[in-house]
């Protein structure tokens, strides 16, 4: 295309009008390309968003409406029956509470232990540091699903099966988080903490009141990852607990999906439960949107 423009310019170069014409054609082509780009993106975005819109819409439908109009985004009659049933007549509030408890403790614990270990590995010079680091890398490569039976065995052996301890403590193991913190601490200059050390502050003091406040960006990454990870965790709770009082949202909603609590399909109920369980991570996502979009690369860097 550009070559034809050139030849035209060369052959009729004295004519200014033609040259102006060819200059106008170029933007036209760009406009067409741009419209195509937008068209493709809008179609793709619609495909990605539509399922969630259908989910929310269906949760406000009656069972019959949901079955006969699965695609419509507006319920024929608005019904909050699914939500009433969930909150007033089921264990759903208990599930929500358990998920919240676990998520809060796991997130706090990971923030503390990850940064502690990450700081030591990045900054403190001690014998065995390299061995610990090598072990950390080795441990990171163990796929989670392989650990289902092993985790049950150790939880059972320790006598903590079916307790909050069994739900929370094993989830504190987070080699990837230590790795992220270590990388971050290595990237900030050591001069500040050295100044404090000369002033006589102890190692923990330096860590707690000087280094940790500086590490806020990395801590936010850890918070996001552990919040999302523990809120969405399913398999660990399957092997760590059995009693209904300790059921989390993921486990509870999974049991809903396979037909407990409901006769027939009851899609509005299931989709309402799924929608509510998505809200906390969605809120988290929108609060930290800027950071998530910028930090994932740092977080998963090889």
């Amino acid at each position: 295309m550009s070559s034809t423009v050139k030849t035209r310019e060369r052959t009729v170069s004295p004519s200014r009008r033609l040259r102006a014409l060819s200059r106008e054609q170029l933007p036209n082509r760009q406009v067409a390309g741009r419209s195509l780009l937008y068209a493709i993106l809008i179609v793709l975005a619609a495909i990605y968003i539509a399922p969630f819109l259908i989910q929310v819409a269906t949760s406000f439908k009656t069972d019959g409406d949901a079955a006969s109009n699965p695609m419509s985004l507006l319920p024929q009659t608005w019904s909050t029956a699914a939500y009433e049933r969930l909150f007033l007549n089921s264990d759903f509030p208990v599930w929500f509470q358990n998920s919240a408890i676990v998520t809060v403790f796991v997130t706090l614990g990971r923030v503390f232990f990850n940064s502690l270990a990450g700081y030591a590995l990045a900054r403190l010079h001690f014998r065995g540091r390299n061995v610990i680091f090598a072990l950390l890398i080795a441990v990171m490569s163990v796929p989670g699903v392989v650990l289902l039976i092993p985790k049950f065995l150790v939880i059972n052996q320790l006598g903590i099966y079916d307790t909050y301890v069994a739900m929370i403590v094993p989830l504190l193991t987070d080699a990837a988080g230590v790795f992220i913190m270590k990388n971050f601490f290595e990237s900030i200059p050591a001069s500040v903490e050295e100044q404090a050390r000369i002033d006589g502050a102890g190692t923990f003091r330096v860590f707690w009141s000087i280094v940790l406040p500086m590490a806020r960006p990395a801590l936010v990454t850890i918070i996001i990852l552990s919040f999302q990870g523990s809120w969405n965790e399913l398999s660990h709770f399957i092997v760590a607990t059995q009693s209904p009082e300790l059921t989390t949202l993921t486990k509870g909603v999974a049991s809903l999906a396979s037909g407990q609590l409901s006769q027939g399909t009851q899609y509005p109920l299931k989709l309402a439960a799924a929608a509510i369980m998505t809200i906390p991570v969605a809120v988290m996502f929108f609060i930290f949107q800027k950071r998530i979009m910028n930090t994932t690369d740092g977080a998963v860097k090889e």
Partner: peptide, 21 residues
């Protein structure tokens, strides 16, 4: 945001939705 959002939701919630769709 549109393309990333499905990644933050739990696999359980998405599966329930998928069973319906």
């Amino acid at each position: 945001t549109a393309f990333y959002f499905p990644s933050v939701t739990s696999s359980v919630a998405i599966t329930v939705l998928w069973l319906f769709l």
